[in-house]
Design a protein around this nucleic acid. Structure first.
Lengths: 221, 221
DNA sequence: AACCGTCTCCGCCGCGCGGGGGAGAGGCCC
DNA sequence: GGGCCTCTCCCCCGCGCGGCGGAGACGGTT
């Protein structure tokens, strides 16, 4: 996970409430494989701390002074060569800011009332795999909200028309060559689109992309 | 395939309409590797004919006098040591009986308006592998056939414990190596299990397997 | 006119994956 | 005791895939 010690996941906490930061730190530091390497009380501070520490995961509050969590997320993801996974932390599950954060590339979100094990598990999940927390977290913490929230996955907005089309074909089990034939472009082009989709979804391979497509409701069962 | 001649697939036809049986017979007998060894006009007749002929594959109409195709399927699968693969044949793709048939263990179903090549291919497929037939049209997915689109829920029963476990992990986006680590076996073993799962599901690769897992409800969104 | 996003396509490279074999151990059933 | 299934693991091989870097064309924005 980290350059210094691959077996330890390095975490930065960004929240304007000291109490929250402390609580998170206590929980995370109790785990041998997790290490809190920095804290920030504002969005701007979060950006600089992250740049300095280069953590694996950032727990980011949405509502913070100066620069909010969304802007901070944007700046971190946009300005770093190898940005960390950013998990948005919020109090209210229907916080509209959350979706903004996800739209700019956050890896998922967590509720502040989440149990310690959930928190720990979530950090490990985003650090280890490339999966997004969004669907699982929503299902686990506020299932009813997830159900009545039909909205397409946040990352869909970031996919171009072509990329979305390609993803739909990927999600029916076609190979790149088959997709190319079907949409009338070259195989290399499909490769490019698939690569773009994987990058935007944070998926490692097409299989994970398909999973995310289902979990997010991009394709319906 | 058959005890007498391994290279020939022996088929029994069960349909109350003579026309249908004849049509099927003509199509199948035209293939050198397929042989129609019996016909039945009722469910009860189907059971006895199958017991006597011990075919590799049965093409079974759902709607038949005396005993319907579901009951007949149930009796055949439940009462024989080495039951044949039973493919349910129906006119309407949204026939609710079809799902009942699949639930009691039918290997899949075919539409009566299927092309001859589809019919022949389907018989060969079920005879050869543990694969199941399941038209994509029913899932409302693709109007066109998603090449080999198998599997409803019933195939889950045919997966061993280990295979099901592996599939669950595949459906979370893990690589073979990761699955191996997680369940505590060697990578080669996982490969074997994955290969078995793919064969039984009729999937070409893990991506298609994941799609089938979602579509069939094996994993829930 | 300069810029940027999108779509198109080209290499090269490493590797995970799937196909096709096989083989041994343990358990269950007849 | 002999089948049969399940689970375990091995080999070799080909290839689709994903990462990487680049490039040209078009259209809209500024």
């Amino acid at each position: 996970m980290s350059a210094a010690n691959p077996s330890v996941t390095r975490v930065v906490l960004a929240d304007d409430e000291r109490m929250v930061r402390t609580a998170l730190r206590v929980i995370l530091d109790a785990e041998p494989d997790l290490e809190v390497v920095g804290e920030a009380a504002t969005g701007a501070e979060a950006v600089s701390v992250v740049r300095a520490e280069r953590p694996d995961v950032v727990l980011m509050d949405v509502r913070m002074p100066e620069i909010d969590g969304i802007r901070a997320t944007e700046q971190i993801l946009g300005g770093m060569a190898e940005p960390p996974r950013i998990v948005v932390v919020t109090t209210f599950e229907n916080d509209s800011y959350v979706y903004d954060a996800l739209r700019v590339g956050a890896a998922g979100f967590l509720l502040k009332r989440a149990a310690a094990e959930e928190l720990v598990g979530a950090v490990r999940l985003v650090a280890r795999s490339d999966s997004l927390l969004y669907p699982a977290a929503v299902r686990g913490l506020a299932a009813e909200h997830a159900r009545r929230a039909p909205a397409a996955a946040p990352w869909v907005a970031r996919l171009t028309e072509r990329e979305a089309e390609v993803l739909r074909h990927v999600a029916t089990g076609l190979t790149n060559a088959e997709i190319a034939e079907r949409i009338g472009v070259g195989p290399a082009t499909v490769k490019s689109h698939v690569a773009a989709v994987l990058a935007k979804l944070g998926a490692r391979d097409r299989t994970q992309a398909v999973i995310l497509a289902y979990e997010s409701g991009f394709v319906r069962t």
